[in-house]
Design a binder for these strands. Structure first.
Lengths: 240, 240
DNA sequence: CAACCCGATTGGTCTATGCCAATCTAGGAC
DNA sequence: GTCCTAGATTGGCATAGACCAATCGGGTTG
């Protein structure tokens, strides 16, 4: 129709679009043809097939396992971030949450933690490192830093099961507000190891600052979520 | 030290790590060596160099322009999402915001819009499509759908300059709360065209549902932000 | 029967190379 | 001087093939 020269779409993008159609009606977990088979069928190189598949993996639509194959990924979860706990959010969706504590100790605050918690660098703070699981699948890596002296914190945390419950019922700390920042990143070796994602897959990096009823920062947490399995929701109320 | 066999890091990842160090002390905009030069220097193929650079581009640390070169990317912006407007947020950072209206019309609600705005499919709704700019650079593509009859909307919007101001001062609509969802995606041809990003670069897709004082949904907006230029912040107040 | 091993299959990394497309620069035409 | 063109340079796309690593299935071995 138009006389204008239209830039032809790259082959890998055409293939990607075709794959999206193909998997639209397939159940999660279904294997798609192998890379070599697709390369044959489309008369293209495996490199080109891999570029198309890689983007779909990055978008969370496909997954792949070396030696096994490439399959349709399960749909994204929705994570409602209110002043509730991760566990509650997940349970509200009918799923089974869990947390594995990797480390719990008292450490001197580094410069970043000190700034966020408004304490002098070197001040002892509690450090809690955990893996968040849903249906036994590791979905997030979280490192929390807590300000102040919290005697018997370990026992209280285990008893309460939830960080926020422990703070509230163990120490009477009431929370005023939460500030979350959300940004994208790509997985490196640490995330590959901890979350079982593949190199270069997208992540959501969340930094959370929690203030108590007096407006004093009490918690500074850095979390890395699998970007292909999560969607964040924030509900924000009007001021008046 | 350990007798355990350590999986050797892929070459492209080593190169990526080296590049992160290299650019740490370089000013934004500085050109890094060309792909061919890096391939020579590291005794590797250009394909491997491109894999390393591609991930850094996806993370927003590098940018590249065909025929020109690969350069250090500017730092991310921070976008505070409260019940304020995009414009106010950007101005608060000392930057110059702008919006370019691509389309403003009344259209029948499709299934998704109808569901979100709780109206029957086909109901006339206002559709506003805009490009958000900061310092003349397009950073987001936004399609808003507004429920209800809004006589003279176009004129009021132009007069107010801001969507929220227009709703409030033009029609007395007070807003109760906002619900944002944030997820990741990769750029396709439309984003390449509208935002000037490259194919496959990461995006933040935000869906926003705004309710009025009675809790009735009044706005359903779909936004696509450049993932390499934005960081979201949500402040959430405790309920009581 | 269970445990083991081996080979086929599949994705992961990498090479070497070619050509296309966008950009920039140096020279020449006017 | 301005404009234009022709190369050189740079990133973008794609090929064909090699070898590695993880997985899985079937057959052998105890």
């Amino acid at each position: 129709m138009s006389a204008e020269a239209v830039a032809p779409l790259p082959k890998y993008y055409v293939l990607k679009t075709d794959l999206v159609e193909l998997i639209a009606n397939l159940a999660p977990g279904t294997l798609i043809p192998t890379e070599r088979a697709l390369a044959d069928r489309y008369g293209t190189s495996r490199t080109t097939v891999r570029q198309a598949i890689s983007e779909l993996v990055a978008e969370g639509r496909l997954g792949r396992i070396q030696g096994h194959g490439t399959f349709v990924a399960p749909p994204k979860l929705t994570h409602v971030r209110q002043l509730t706990s991760f566990s509650e959010d997940v349970r509200a969706q009918g799923l089974r949450p869990a947390a594995k504590t990797l480390a719990l100790s008292t450490v001197p605050a580094d410069n970043e933690v000190a700034e966020k918690l408004t304490v002098p660098p070197g001040t002892p703070v509690h450090r809690l490192e955990r893996i968040r699981l849903v249906e036994d699948e590791p979905l997030a890596h979280e490192v929390a830093h807590l300000r102040g002296r919290l005697p018997g914190f370990k026992a209280k945390l285990e008893k309460a099961g939830s960080l926020y419950t422990a703070l509230k019922e163990g120490y009477g700390i009431r929370l005023l507000d939460v500030e979350d920042t959300v940004e994208t990143a790509l997985a490196g070796p640490e995330e590959v190891r901890l979350l079982g994602v593949e190199m270069g897959s997208p992540l959501l990096v969340v930094h959370r600052l929690v203030r108590d009823a007096e407006g004093i920062p009490v918690e500074w947490t850095s979390s890395v979520f699998r970007g292909d399995r999560f969607r964040f929701v924030a509900r924000i109320k009007a001021d008046g």
